[in-house]
Structures are given as structure tokens and as C-alpha cells.
Amino acid sequence: MRGLFLKLRFFCWLLLAVAGCRVSVALGAEPITVRLLVSEGNVFAARTATQLETLLHNNDIDVVAEPATGSQKSRRLVVAIGAGAWRKAVDTLGPDVALLGVMVPQQTLEQSVGRRARLAGVILAEPPPSRLLNLIQLALPYRRQVGLIAGPQLTSQLGRIEGAAAERGLHLGIEKVTQEAEVGPAVERLVQAGTALLALPDGTVHTANTVQPLLLISYRNGVPVVAYSEAYLRAGAALATYSTPEQLARQSAEMVIAYREGKGALPIQSPRYFSVGVNQAVVRSLDLSLPSPEDIGNRLRQMKE
């Protein structure tokens, strides 16, 4: 009993110490006001914004949400969530306003080079390809022939992705497409030799219109799709690694706080926190035996990306 009391007292001291540090950091930092710009019609971005707002409030940061229109010149820090919000921000913000982009596709970011406002940081929409390759290596160790459909968005990264696959002992079969209609035939060709299909974000390859043929053809041939989003997992991918709105909001909040503390422009980051999901119905139907998503996730976080 006495031991328990001592432990409780120790924890109370510890909590007070941590709270004191937090207050001192908050007092020492320059107060800022954050405005959130969210892409219209992007439900995922809206959920991320809601989470981020809560986290920022908890860190004593004022948040004002406004649509991505009108004058933004008075903002100290603008967080643009989604590609549309990012484009509007770089088009309208002056260089005196700092900008943090969240869920910005790589291609959109490259297109806005030279026009951007003062950059506070960017969290890319895409997870690093190496993370998905690690996932295949971990969860589907007997499936080494991996198919990949590359649209214009991915073409410039192909060399790097092929190298990463080779490092992991995976053989990458690549089909290049330039429009949505080419996706179905490309999948048909890939699944003839491939034992897994890797979905990496590409605005031409993975759309609401292409996901049907892609998932149906691969499923028909017994080839699991490994994808990058929770929506893809729900649509029929066998497994996926993705960042939830909560995880993206957490990373965004950390970047806002870092900015407030005067750490300057942060580098462009991939989503740092992520989950692993398994579509049990699809996996069962394909007769695959996989470890639990939690186990895969834990091991994945320990692997080099």
C-alpha cells in the first residue's frame, strides 16, 4: 500500500513537471493565428481540418476557418488542406504570409514552384513508395512479382521506385498509361505475371472511374491490391497503409507548433504517422493468411523507408 502511494506521488510530480515545461514553451513562443483553408468537396480534408482545429485549440493557438476565397493578407499562418486549397493559397497569398500545405500531391507541389508564398512546410499527400514496398515484403512474402501502373504523375519517380523494389527483392512490372481508359487493359497485362498489384497515388490511374476495373480484374485473377488510402481499402484493396485524418492532423499540429516556436521553414515531409488496414472480407476470399494489421503496422514502423 505504501509502495502504491509512493508511486502515485511520483507520477503527480512528473505530471506537474511536464505541465510546467509545456506552459513555459507556450509562454516563450510568439502567439500566432492560424487560418485553415480546406478544399471544397474534399471530405477527407474537412475531417483533417476538424481534428487539427481541436489540436491547435488544445495548444492555445487561435484558429479561424474561412473558405479559400477573399483576401488572406492579414493571416500569420495559413494551413491549406488539400490540393485545391493549396492552389488557391499559393495564387492569392502574398510572400508576407506563411503557408503550411497538408495533403498536397507531389505533382501539385511541383507545379506551384516559384509561385508559392512564404513556406512554413508541406505534408505530402503520398506516403513514401518504400513504405508500401515494405508492406508487401512484410505481409505477402511469397508474392515477389509486383505490378505497378504509372500515370504521368508517377513517371518521374519510376527509377527511384524500381531501385527501392530491387533492394527488397521485389520484381516490379510497370505499365505506363496516359489516360483513364488505358488502366483496365494495363491491369489485365500486369496480373498475368504479377502476384500483387501496388497502387501508388496518381491522378490518372486511381480515380473513382478506374478503381472498378482495377479492383475487379485483379481480384478475378487472385491478385491482391496493396493501396495507400483507407478509401481504397474499403473499396476492395486487400491491404493498405494510410494516414488517417487524425494522424495527419497530429503531424500538422506539430509543424504549426514548431513554426510558432520559430524553427523556421521545415522541409517537405511525407505523412509520418500511419496505420495499416486489412480488408478481411477480401483477404479471406483470396485465401490469404495475414498477420493482424496491428502486428504488420508495428513491424512496418521499424523498417527503413
Partner: peptide, 13 residues
């Protein structure tokens, strides 16, 4: 180009 595949996709399977 709104980060395709992250938002709502039709449930296929």
C-alpha cells in the same frame, strides 16, 4: 487531382 483515391471511392468488392 484532389489527391485521388484518398476521398470517397466506390465500394467495388
Amino acid at each position: 487531382d484532389e489527391a485521388d483515391g484518398f476521398g470517397d471511392l466506390p465500394v467495388v468488392l
